[in-house]
Design a binder for these strands. Sequence first.
DNA 1: TTGTATGCGTTATCAG
DNA 2: CTGATAACGCATACAA
Lengths: 371, 371
Amino acid sequence: MPSSARKKAAPDKAASPVSMSDLAKELGVSVTTISRALSDHFSIGPATKKRVLQLAKKRNYQPNHLAAALRKGKSKLIGVIVPHIYGSFFPAVTHGIERAASKAGYSVILCQSHEDVELERQCLETLIGAQVEGILVSLARTAQDLRHFQKVQQRGTPLVFFDRILENAAVNAVVLDDRKGGYVTTRHLLEQGCRRIAHFAGPQQLNIYRNRRQGYLDALEEYGVPANEELIVYCDMTLEDGQQGMKQLLSLRTPPDAVFAAGDFTAMGALHTIRDQLLQVPQDIALAGFSNEAFTYLLEPRITSVNQKGDQMGQAVIQLLLDVVNQQPGQPLQQVVLEPELLVRTSSLAGREPAAPKAKPASRKPAAGRK
Amino acid sequence: MPSSARKKAAPDKAASPVSMSDLAKELGVSVTTISRALSDHFSIGPATKKRVLQLAKKRNYQPNHLAAALRKGKSKLIGVIVPHIYGSFFPAVTHGIERAASKAGYSVILCQSHEDVELERQCLETLIGAQVEGILVSLARTAQDLRHFQKVQQRGTPLVFFDRILENAAVNAVVLDDRKGGYVTTRHLLEQGCRRIAHFAGPQQLNIYRNRRQGYLDALEEYGVPANEELIVYCDMTLEDGQQGMKQLLSLRTPPDAVFAAGDFTAMGALHTIRDQLLQVPQDIALAGFSNEAFTYLLEPRITSVNQKGDQMGQAVIQLLLDVVNQQPGQPLQQVVLEPELLVRTSSLAGREPAAPKAKPASRKPAAGRK
DNA sequence: TTGTATGCGTTATCAG
DNA sequence: CTGATAACGCATACAA
């Protein structure tokens, strides 16, 4: 676009943004007129309006949203804090958020906490500093409390959490029904005839992992399979945790015949170890993960996983935020719960004799309901 | 954190941000004093400084960066536009960017163009509106020109491109030596004894894909293997393109004995088709991709790929931006070129009799040099 | 239909 | 050491 920038020394109007008063001077009118003309106010004659618009274009006028925001107290900005943007889930959520926000006339700025509470606090500062009108947060895994959100609270900036929340906290939030996700996945394994189902559980202070584990226990109970802490591996849900934990599980006197990992990376790690031991998936051990990462469906065996519906969650979060913004203060808090979707793939099709539920299977309601 | 919010009707100071003048009134001093105390100016007595700081904390004062930015003309914000945040590359770059920017005292706000030029333009507006001090861009794949960046140019906002750029454009940029990446990958396949090497090429208006293809051609030439357009599949680099294109290649009278795809997803698609036809990788067909996506190294066969060093690129981009910011206008443009890294994995270890370079192999210099 | 005056929250300049 | 005042760019109540 710009030419070689060597000889053509065209006076390219290099720097200095053009302001309304610049335009006003040049046209010999007041700043008010400019302001109104640009915002298409009805009290401005079509003639002047046209002149202003033309000059604005010619001088490449760029409105200073910052000044407008300062004046109006509205920035039309929404801030989002996510733990990271790796994998498939958070990118999907932000996608949903951006689409829905854009429709409502907001722009989105994104920050990553990199799973660090201190960075999370810094993101918060940045966003508050940018005068965002609302903040959306999925907590860093190390978050133990919500102290650093007090500022936001007190400042009156609307706050909505999603996916990763602190339970028992009185907050607005959109979450997945992780408990149900854990439940249906485990039930599926039971129905494939598996009885000794191991579980890789994530950090239990995080709602998502605690709920997935609870769903796992729900299903076992329903099918009359006694829960066995020996079969539950608590870890940080990395790939290495999966490898390591699986070694441990395989060294048990009676190894498991199925594994339900609360995350796909861990499931993948487990798979590595299983194969290293020359065992087959799903024939010897059935396997299921959580999150529907790309690698779960790209290579054999395709790994059964749970779709977290990130895109939908993103839209729901914006919806809830807009509700909050347009409500009077003191409204009751809302928690929206989304339905997970089990994606059955080859890794879990053990095809053994199915287990049967213990009692009245239809009546069980493992979902976490709406608060 | 907040209690049940029902009975405890504690006057929680719900809304209204606290300003400097609020603090000034309460302490009976001037706003100036407050401002100076908060910014730790030397001309303020330790006693008053302490009083101010304490009150600020007590009242939960939050500086209005917006107002400060307006006044100072500096927002300490850097805007980043990426085509998307899926996969491993762009998240890695943003990670690098955030770390380096943070070190330099800047905050980063991220926008996605979703590969759409119009959205790219909107992101630009948002960032300009937020008064960012610099803009980093990796182009949407549909970008044909840089017209929408003229505004930024003229406004004097520093602009640095990375990874995806328009060639022959006079811009500051940090890129990977994609040509070399294509070259070393193809050479590796040749050294594995492959002679009919197919290539999945991406949209050729994008520098990255054109360069990868050029590197492929460089290697073929060096080893005296005639290039064959029949073996080059031009596509959009989706998984489906890989599946489809591979079918086409396998139906040739003499099918290829290796495939170099300019992207991992396409490589994965090709792999699917190859296996569907009951052929083996790497024995029948060797395979290599580009980008080092997670799925390339998580399951067998592990797919040979090229590490794009996203994190390094992120740091380099910030470095370059800071250079630009601190330079006088009219400085020569810079293009920084990063080295790719070939990651050899099982998918390409054909182990056939190696090809030998045609002529003086050592003298070849396929790298794109520094402008 | 247009202009004047004022203020949003900060910081820089110049006096005390 | 501290304070009064102006200015950043824009939007609005009020006046003309």
